[in-house]
Amino acid sequence: MPRFVLTVAMAFLALLSWGASASGYTPASVPNTLKQRITACTSCHGANGEGGTNGFNPRLAGKPATYLYHQLLNFRDGRRHYPLMTYMLRPLSDAYLHEIATYFSALDTRYPERHPPRLSSTELARGRTLVHEGDPGKGIPACQACHGARLTGVEPAIPGLLGLPYSYLSAQLGAWRNGTRRMRNPDCMKHVADRLDARDIRAVAAWLAAQPIPAEDRAQAASSPGHDLPLRCGSVEIGE
């Protein structure tokens, strides 16, 4: 566009806005909802918390509220490391983070398509064994022992493992091994991840990412107050 036209257009725009202010400008109305407030969250995690399409930003919808709240605190307080999340959360209060966690926990929405890598049947069998039985020889409990028989999580603080992208799952296990994802002590997932080698992580993440979502996809209720876990877990013990 020639510069002259642009200049005239700018001048016109400026005049327009001046005119608006002179004639009593009515601002647009913004929905007074939490959904509108948290577009910073939904722009990556999906409008309904279904997760991003990039294979990394995880699903938030339907995860146990206390689990989500703990993750927000962990990011804000430096136990989980993703600088953009820490930056987002730093100026926010506990009460607001709790409200945001509860909001996503109550959502129920479609699962995004997942594209797990194709693994050999031997590798997949290893993944399935780790999930259902663990590896007692290496001190690895079965995923099911904590994350529920359906692997959809246990209220209030243990997340489900289904419907998550392969890259997200494998990155979390790697982060625990490297100490860049932590929870309040005792850190049970650190114990588990330290005993998984790179092939185990690949196998278990790929097997989980390939599973269909069960009809009942919500976290199961805690069976008993103690919920007999094979390991002590800080995030379960502290509750809210």
Partner: peptide
């Protein structure tokens, strides 16, 4: 690039936010 939230304050305990555009 980063978007972000306004701070929580007594006056505005539930702030609005801007999405990050770094990835988009």
């Amino acid at each position: 690039l980063l978007g972000g939230f306004e701070p929580t304050t007594a006056m505005y305990p539930r702030p609005y936010s801007m999405p990050p555009y770094a990835q988009r």
